[in-house]
Amino acid sequence: MTATRSAPERTPAVPRRPVRTLRTAVGADPARGVFVALALTLVIGWLVVALDGGQLLNQSSVVSLLHVATGLGLVAAGQTLVILGGSLDLSVGYVVSLSTLVAAETMNGSDSRITPAVLLVLAVSVAIGLVNGVLVATVGINAFIATLGVGLLLKGYLENGYDGPAGSTAPTLVQTLGYQRVGPVPVAFLLFLGVAAAIWFALRRTRYGHHLVAVGGDPDVARLSGVRNDRVLILSHVLCALCAGLAGIYLASRLGSGAPRVGVESFYDLESIAAVVLGGAALAGGRGGVAGTVGGVLLLATVDSVFNQLEVDAFFKQVVRGVIIIAAVALYARRRHRRHRERTGAPS
């Protein structure tokens, strides 16, 4: 056994794991796919609608598309934060409904009470978010069950207290937030973009954002690195509920009154999670971004708009939506899996 005989046989390469720094985690762009899909959907949708003799991108349909995107988008933007942290929030639908009622009943049709109404809605949302956050982060309950439980509490309150629309939104708010537009773009959509931009900034540029991604990626590593996981998660839940509260104020302005069933009937809880996942986020946390969520929301709203233009049966719409959500996530999962295999050098 001379030295020459045992000439360095290549040691089997240790699978190289990509170094997961905060920068790569935040900087990787999971959003690209969803915008490609959005573009494709727009083109195909435009073609199909054109063949049907319609026009997908005329003023009125763009406006209604953006309004659909605003309600879902505000909820989904907040949902992005909790999902990034490895949690999720199933109570948002009920928070939205409750917020429309709190807003409309406090205003009771008078402009002078807009400020207290908005403040009250935000306070209620913060309180609910705090409960969610404490249950998930401090008590340590599975987020699915914790937020489902809180949602059920709110559901019982809503069903016990309200049969139908209640209260009335201040006219000024209806005119501005509900219906005012800049060209084809509703003011409310700009509000949504503003919220999304703020969250984008928080994720990319603040310590909170970096800590959140770290907590979602690996809670133990985050804790050992000195991140206070519970605080980060609680703050995310509070912000998520705040976003749902904002969506409630928007819907109250849009509908003119409080609507106890709007959040559930719009499937905001499940659709917001779908939008976030369509935007390339991992349900397990640690990967994703608000830009992707905006893409996911626009994608869902576009599909909705195309179906409306084609006057497709509402139930058929739901079937197709289910198929799209599964198919899109399956595509992502496949691509991610392949990339992962290439990187780690595992046999395919």
Binding site: L270, I273, A274, V277, L283, A284, Q318, V319, R321, G322, V323, I325, I326, V329, A330, A333, R334, H337
Partner: peptide, 14 residues
């Protein structure tokens, strides 16, 4: 490899 949360949610809608 679709998370079951999404699979069965989609199945629910369908």
């Amino acid at each position: 490899r679709v998370p079951s949360f999404i699979t069965t949610l989609g199945m629910y809608l369908i």
